[in-house]
């Protein structure tokens, strides 16, 4: 059960129960939908991008504790970053949850280490990255719905 406690840490449960930046923030000029057809999780991610800066991010929809907490943490951490930085942070985050990257995240991303526990649950990596893939699509202004399964 100890690895389950690691997966469902208090931080994750807190962000699941009280997701930050939940609901569509106005104004926004980027948006994308993401869904995981395997479990029915669906998110819409909104962003306000000006002068290459991600000035605001919000999301709505419903998902499991892992996908919701990850979305909530993402909105907090990427707000105020440059688009370029946001993309780079996505790659680093992806590396941690897939297990491709072994070391813990630092310099501002250390909060995301709470999600590293999903690497033991390959089926759940898609939950952890759903909102991130969706934000990436929003920033790239891709029209297609993001699907992770």
């Amino acid at each position: 059960m100890s690895d389950l406690r690691e997966l469902y840490q208090e931080v994750i449960l807190d962000h699941y129960r009280s997701p930050r930046n939940f609901g569509h923030h106005q104004p926004s000029n980027r948006e994308a939908k993401g869904n995981n057809p395997l479990c029915g999780d669906k998110f819409t991610v909104y962003a306000l991008v000006e002068d290459g800066m991600v000035k605001d991010i919000s999301f709505e929809g419903r998902g499991c504790a892992i996908s919701t907490a990850s979305a909530s943490l993402m909105t907090e951490l990427l707000k105020g970053q440059t688009e370029q930085n946001a993309q780079a942070m996505f790659e680093r985050f992806r590396g941690v949850v897939t297990g491709e990257q072994d070391q813990r995240l630092d310099d501002g991303l250390d909060k995301l280490n709470v999600l590293a526990g999903v690497r033991g649950y390959p089926m759940r990596v898609k939950c952890a990255t759903l909102a991130w893939h969706t934000l990436k699509a929003a920033l790239n202004q891709t029209d297609e719905t993001v699907v992770t399964e």
């Binding site: 469902y8 479990c39 499991c64 504790a65």
Partner: peptide, 22 residues
């Protein structure tokens, strides 16, 4: 209080295989 996917992961950890999803 819990999403089926999270329930499924915890049950799986206990050796209990159920279907979660639609």
């Amino acid at each position: 209080y819990a999403h089926p996917h999270d329930i499924g992961t915890v049950l799986d950890n206990q050796g209990v295989a159920v279907r979660t999803g639609h």
